[in-house]
Simulated assay, not measured.
Amino acid sequence: MNHQEKTPKKTLVRELIALHLISNLGARRIRMLIQAAGHPQDIFRMNRRELQSIHGIGPKTAEQIVSFDGWSEVDRILQKTERIGAVLMTLWDEDYPPLLREIYDSPLLLWIKGNRRALQTDSVAIVGTRKAGRYGRDAARLFARELSKRGLTITSGLAYGIDGAAHRATVAAGGCTVGVLGSGIDIIYPAAHKKLAADIIDTGGAIISEFPVGTDPDAGNFPVRNRIVSGLSLGTLVVASGIAGGSMITAKLALDQNREVFVVPHPIGTPNAIGCNNLIQRGMGKLVQDVEDILEEIEVHISKRDSEGREEEPGEDLDDTPRWRSLELDELSADICKTLQGNPLHIDDLAERLGVEPHKLLPTLLELELQECVRQMSGKNFELGF
């Protein structure tokens, strides 16, 4: 892949960071903006009236976009990202975590320190209260150790209590673990877990965040990051929890994402019993007593995925094969690529051949450009990528 082919992604990253700096915009509304504008760059060229015509964009947000002048801050974030040894992943990258891509509001950007490939592994989330008692901490260690020995990655939030116990047990067992932050990748919270974060990275795991570098660990960030904890995972194990709090939020998010929820039962009247026992009582999670109770559920998903992979035709030497043929594209995307097989086309000519209005082609062309299936040339001309 040459430098020219990489340029659209670099441009996209800069625009996405800028959009992340606009308060209360969020991944879902940024996606809607990209779909309406056709390309992230074009969002900042729209006027207030055009922006407010997009569902979910009010006068205040439109004004923030039109008046955005934080490009020097964007460049500072990119420079600091490189300086601290972090990398950026976008939703359109080929190695974006497949399970995370499936959720309703997948993060568009992820900052990563450590092993990027850790996000491609089969994972179970282990979550629970920061104020865990001995029973909860012992259970977290047990399940983390045994699951990691079975080759599963342990995902959690690097917090005190259950999170920390699960991460440490995985590291000690020589397993892979991923910590998801509610702050910028450069701000480990709590600070007492800086060494734990370093140990996670040193043993082949990763620390990730969707928040730009320099973002403080504000309370509102943690419920947002919890969807990533559950979204990365085949299932979420709630080890200890009160009736409210982050663990209960993560369990509900996992259910919304059509993922498994597992729950450690607690003796009646003990601390942190109410939340776990309530999930079991309401049928919102499977009571687990040992690691086999989890494995028998998630192995069904792993076997199904592996079986689907084996059903695909054996790969051939794709060096001379157009990239788009190796991807599962929707009908319009495939039609675009087929039409571009001969010669480059202006977007108006492409739209005429496909019988689709030009502005409706732009979002799909952007997706194909980011997947390196097509390239945009000067003057709104497009050619097939290889």
Rank of each mutant, 00 (worst) to 15 (best):
A62T: 03
I57D: 01
V66E: 03
P40F: 08
I34W: 07
E63D: 13
P40L: 08
H55L: 14
K60I: 12
A62C: 04
G26C: 09
Q35G: 10
F44T: 08
L21C: 06
R83V: 07
R14D: 02
N24P: 00
A18K: 02
I84N: 03
N47F: 11
L25F: 14
R49M: 13
D42A: 14
R29I: 12
R14F: 03
A36S: 15
I84K: 02
R31N: 14
I34D: 05
A36E: 09
I57M: 07
P8Y: 00
G70S: 07
W71Y: 06
I22N: 07
L33E: 06
S53P: 03
L33T: 06
M32C: 12
I57R: 01
K9R: 11
L78N: 02
A62F: 05
E5H: 07
E82H: 09
V74Q: 00
R48Q: 15
I54P: 01
L21R: 11
A18E: 02
Q4K: 08
F44A: 08
I43Q: 05
M46Q: 12
I17N: 01
I34G: 02
Q4P: 00
E15A: 03
K9Y: 05
D42Y: 11
K80V: 10
R76K: 14
L51R: 03
R14T: 10
D42E: 15
R48A: 14
I43S: 02
K80F: 05
L16V: 06
Q52R: 12
R31Q: 15
G58W: 06
Q79D: 13
M32S: 15
N24M: 10
L78V: 04
I30H: 05
I77T: 04
I54D: 05
I43L: 08
R48K: 15
F44L: 10
I34E: 11
A62M: 04
R83L: 12
P59K: 09
G38L: 10
Q52P: 04
I34C: 14
A37I: 12
R83N: 09
V13Y: 00
L12F: 10
R83A: 14
Q79K: 13
E82Q: 10
E50I: 05
E82K: 12
Q41K: 15
A27D: 15
Q4I: 13
I43T: 09
Q79L: 08
D42C: 10
A36K: 12
L19P: 02
F44V: 09
R83S: 13
L51A: 05
K80D: 07
G26F: 08
K60G: 02
G38E: 09
S23T: 14
E15N: 12
P40M: 08
L78T: 01
A62V: 04
K80M: 10
R45L: 14
T61H: 07
N47Q: 10
L16M: 07
